[in-house]
């Protein structure tokens, strides 16, 4: 299957077909998620109404890590098989992941101000997510820093793989260190620790964010593919 979709033309056909599906899923789940998170879920007994910010904060943080894993995985494919489709997926994922990371940091900060009384604390979770943000920025700048695009792609891929060490640090930072940030309460061995009235909007938003990632990923990969073809044509023209 991997080889089948590694063909750029097939990949283009597939993304063009899947793009409207991702759009519909995004709009439905996010619409429902917004309705549930703003109107249909109760305020938390400890955090009162601010718990609603969780419904945009937590999915953004999940997606920040998900995108990084996707980025690192496709970077590994770029380095091992030198495949163009993987390169396009990696290059298209980076800006989306950077946006999710920025949102996770910004909404977390907006939640922290009323709850912790400060916009920012230098604990392990926040610091490691900030490093993640810099990794995304570094990836994008390094990718575009070379005159020869394949050099940039490979150098950035190596950076992405080196940075993957940060992902488990983010995941376990709340367990390894005593921090203000609360530990995971949805993904646990003995089932989620939050009530279903809050789990519904959270999961809806999470599905919505994931579908949104794929939606934008499909748009961006089609654009990158066209840009790639333009470059190839230009080179062919220049060589006569």
């Amino acid at each position: 299957m991997f080889n089948y979709f590694a063909n750029p033309t097939r990949f283009l056909r597939l993304t063009s077909k899947l793009q409207p599906i991702a759009m519909v899923v995004t709009l439905i789940t996010m619409g429902a998620g917004l309705y549930y998170s703003l109107f249909q879920s109760p305020p938390d007994y400890q955090q009162s109404e601010t718990v609603r910010m969780m419904y945009v904060h937590v999915p953004a943080a999940w997606m920040a890590m998900f995108c990084y894993v996707a980025l690192a995985a496709s970077s590994a494919v770029v380095l091992i098989w030198r495949h163009m489709v993987a390169d396009i997926v990696a290059k298209s994922t980076a800006p989306i992941g950077a946006c999710f990371t920025f949102l996770a940091l910004a909404t977390g900060s907006l939640w922290g101000k009323p709850m912790w009384g400060t916009w920012w604390v230098w604990d392990a979770r926040l610091t490691s997510v900030l490093i993640l943000f810099f990794l995304y920025l570094g990836y994008m700048v390094l990718y575009n820093a070379f005159d020869e695009p394949t050099r940039g792609a490979r150098a950035a891929a190596i950076l992405a793989i080196v940075g993957v060490i940060n992902v488990p640090i983010i995941k376990f930072s709340v367990d390894w260190w005593n921090t203000l940030h609360q530990p995971a309460s949805v993904v646990k061995m003995d089932g989620p620790a939050i009530h279903s009235s809050m789990l519904t909007p959270l999961l809806l938003m999470a599905v919505g964010y994931t579908a949104f990632y794929f939606w934008v990923l499909f748009i961006r990969s089609r654009a990158e593919l066209s840009a790639y073809k333009v470059r190839a044509l230009r080179i062919r023209q220049a060589e006569g």
């Binding site: 570094g138 150098a155 080196v162």
Partner: peptide, 19 residues
């Protein structure tokens, strides 16, 4: 990583200071 890159000094700090 920065060998042959443009603006390599800035790039280097962006890449390794977070690490």
């Amino acid at each position: 990583l920065i060998l042959g890159a443009r603006r390599s000094g800035f790039l280097l700090s962006l890449l390794i200071l977070p690490l």
